[in-house]
Design a protein around this nucleic acid. Sequence first.
DNA 1: GTGGTCTAGACCACC
DNA 2: GTGGTCTAGACCACG
Lengths: 136, 136, 136, 136
Amino acid sequence: MHLTINPSGELSLYRQIVRQIKDSIASGRLAPGEKLPSHRELSEQLVIAPLTVKKAYDELESEGCIETRRGLGTFVAERPPAVDSGRRADDLRAEARALLAQAYIAGFTLADVRRILRDADHELTSVSPEKEKPRT
Amino acid sequence: MHLTINPSGELSLYRQIVRQIKDSIASGRLAPGEKLPSHRELSEQLVIAPLTVKKAYDELESEGCIETRRGLGTFVAERPPAVDSGRRADDLRAEARALLAQAYIAGFTLADVRRILRDADHELTSVSPEKEKPRT
Amino acid sequence: MHLTINPSGELSLYRQIVRQIKDSIASGRLAPGEKLPSHRELSEQLVIAPLTVKKAYDELESEGCIETRRGLGTFVAERPPAVDSGRRADDLRAEARALLAQAYIAGFTLADVRRILRDADHELTSVSPEKEKPRT
Amino acid sequence: MHLTINPSGELSLYRQIVRQIKDSIASGRLAPGEKLPSHRELSEQLVIAPLTVKKAYDELESEGCIETRRGLGTFVAERPPAVDSGRRADDLRAEARALLAQAYIAGFTLADVRRILRDADHELTSVSPEKEKPRT
DNA sequence: GTGGTCTAGACCACC
DNA sequence: GTGGTCTAGACCACG
């Protein structure tokens, strides 16, 4: 599982985690029954405090998105509650709009933003940390 | 000017205000030089504490989006903030990366994001909706 | 770090704090990366409300002089604020004009101001006075 | 009499006026017995509200720096209280130091500041609005 | 009435 | 413990 959090973002850290795990489940990147990293493990990966990840897991569990099996770990629920089909798109639209407004006020054009987005995509996809077969 | 805030939303109240005012400026609904409601007035309209609105105004002013004239009121800045465009571009790149990362996790493709961005641009740049043919 | 504020001075409390911290940074008494006292701690030391110190910190942060890490504290920025130097220069020019105007009204000459400036520079750049041979 | 006030400065408008008039008296630019412009007149010159100037005059009068002669106007006192000889210089030093600190943090050098100061002086002295015999 | 500053005190997020 | 947000309410400066 690959999450990206932004410590200086507008959302609190644990809310970023909750949102991203929900979105991962909705998009199929996380399959029902799949094992999640322990909160301690994830906290190391994200370089944040374990309690912060724990808080996100707790909220996800209380909503039925994930399940804790004592001694085994945390897993995506077999039948996770469906994420409102339009919500992910709405969230994304809101972020995109905020990004654009910000850019326009700073004097950038749509073309500028498009170019910046393309560059960002190249950076993100060229690295692709998940597909790097750690060892054979 | 009409704003709506959601006290139980994920973003803090003042950040919601900042976003919406930037959106209004970028879209032209708020024209350069135009007067904003006083922070007290807006706080009554939104049913929140005056200082919360003030904090939003303070941030917008420190970014150069608005200007205040003591005793007169708060106004949309005449000229866009003159901050180093290199730094602006860096900020924008970081936000674009975050947007893309979020989109990918949620199962969207670059093409999806491009489309969403185009739609957002259409909404932002369509001439001020408030003054459009009041009636047919 | 040691600050002194004068509640009955001409400058507002938080502006006095901003000035003194900038002075400390410029003189090197506060090194890049160094931790500032928490705003609560400093507020106790100065016997003023925590929010007043916070406001000073907020302004310093928005100018890029300091950085905050949630849960950890507030630190002097590692690198000087990367703001458009043209704008900085404009600000500086305006302040220099104001300084000169004040000096002329008070009966000083350009040479006087030059001398005062040189003295101020000596004070600012003399190595941190706190660590200078505690006694002879 | 020529005053310069800065509406966005750190000091309140009326305090700027008080300080400058005191300094003018101390430096001899305003002689004992000399007539001051009416507060209405000065308010027009400075483009501020008459009451603001009035407030400054009131404070100056209560301190014995100026006198109001009903129906005649406002005059510099014949024996104005001496301004602490070092105060003007101290004020100036404080301003100079704040200016320098600001400049150093922004990455300017003492030489830069010196050059900026020289330019500012040229602007101030080349215009010299007071000596422009309005009409013959 | 407008913005500017200050206070006291509360709750949340994070380490 | 740290910073982040919100509230209620007060007084000053300015037009």
